[in-house]
Amino acid sequence: MLKAIIFDMDGTLFRTETILERALDEAFERLRREGQWQGATPIDTYRNIMGMPLPVVWETLLPHHETAVREATDAYFLTRLVENINNGNGALYSGVIALFERLNNMGYTLFVASNGLIPYLEAIVSHYGLNRWVTETYSIEQIDTLDKGDLVAQIVAKYDIQDGFVVGDRLSDILAAKANGLIAIGCRFDFSQDDELKQADHIIDGLAEIPDILATRHVSR
């Protein structure tokens, strides 16, 4: 039977803050030039909602703007994120590559399920060569409901996963695990919130702790 681990991307594998502020400020500078925004870039507000689907993000950051403005800003923000990744301005969390190699040797099949959009995820996977270990990367764009539980369910159904883990830093990851009968590993990283993490089955402060958790949990073969 497949031994699977499904990873979130932002704030779990990829240190989003390394490109986030730059790309967000570029997007809001564009809004300022167009007379659509005054004042500072709302970076703190965005940090509080990291991990939410982007339509929700822009409804929160631009609550009084028309849908067309939000969509245009979203598209520009995405291009800036991808360009920053391709220019080498981003970074993975410490130990990602070593962890993936070890999990591969342990016989685990790895997936990514993210609220990020497809071009953004493809840029990260390509730039860092993660497809050497990741079987398939899933974006919330692939699910009409924009519900991460439904996204994980798609992976579970396609690969007949009956036991496994979801690793992520936000409540959506934890709930997605529980909705699909999987074990939730919460990451106490940059964007995590303690009140959300307490609902996880395990909490880690670094990715290197994952193999120890796997050693104590017997995933059916």
Rank of each mutant, 00 (worst) to 15 (best):
residue 10 D to W: 04
residue 12 T to S: 07
residue 13 L to F: 07
residue 14 F to V: 05
residue 16 T to I: 05
residue 18 T to F: 07
residue 23 A to S: 13
residue 27 A to D: 07
residue 27 A to F: 06
residue 28 F to E: 03
residue 30 R to Q: 11
residue 32 R to Q: 06
residue 34 E to G: 03
residue 36 Q to C: 10
residue 39 G to Y: 09
residue 39 G to P: 03
residue 41 T to W: 07
residue 42 P to S: 04
residue 48 N to L: 14
residue 49 I to R: 00
residue 50 M to W: 06
residue 51 G to K: 00
residue 52 M to C: 10
residue 52 M to L: 13
residue 53 P to K: 01
residue 54 L to P: 00
residue 55 P to T: 04
residue 59 E to D: 15
residue 60 T to N: 12
residue 61 L to S: 04
residue 61 L to K: 02
residue 63 P to G: 11
residue 65 H to E: 13
residue 66 E to R: 13
residue 66 E to G: 10
residue 71 E to P: 01
residue 74 D to M: 14
residue 75 A to W: 10
residue 80 R to H: 08
residue 80 R to E: 12
residue 83 E to K: 10
residue 85 I to E: 04
residue 88 G to H: 10
residue 98 A to E: 15
residue 101 E to A: 12
residue 102 R to T: 14
residue 102 R to P: 04
residue 104 N to T: 14
residue 105 N to R: 14
residue 113 A to C: 12
residue 114 S to R: 01
residue 117 L to C: 08
residue 117 L to E: 15
residue 119 P to S: 09
residue 121 L to D: 00
residue 123 A to I: 06
residue 124 I to R: 02
residue 125 V to P: 00
residue 127 H to D: 10
residue 127 H to V: 10
residue 128 Y to P: 02
residue 130 L to H: 04
residue 131 N to C: 11
residue 133 W to Q: 07
residue 133 W to V: 03
residue 133 W to M: 06
residue 135 T to N: 12
residue 145 T to I: 02
residue 147 D to S: 10
residue 151 L to I: 05
residue 152 V to R: 05
residue 153 A to Q: 12
residue 165 F to E: 01
residue 165 F to A: 03
residue 167 V to W: 02
residue 176 A to F: 03
residue 176 A to T: 02
residue 177 A to I: 04
residue 177 A to Y: 04
residue 180 N to K: 05
residue 181 G to R: 09
residue 183 I to H: 03
residue 185 I to P: 00
residue 185 I to H: 01
residue 187 C to T: 07
residue 190 D to V: 13
residue 192 S to D: 02
residue 193 Q to M: 10
residue 193 Q to D: 10
residue 195 D to M: 11
residue 197 L to N: 02
residue 198 K to R: 14
residue 199 Q to K: 13
residue 202 H to S: 06
residue 207 L to S: 05
residue 213 I to L: 12
residue 220 S to W: 11
residue 221 R to F: 14
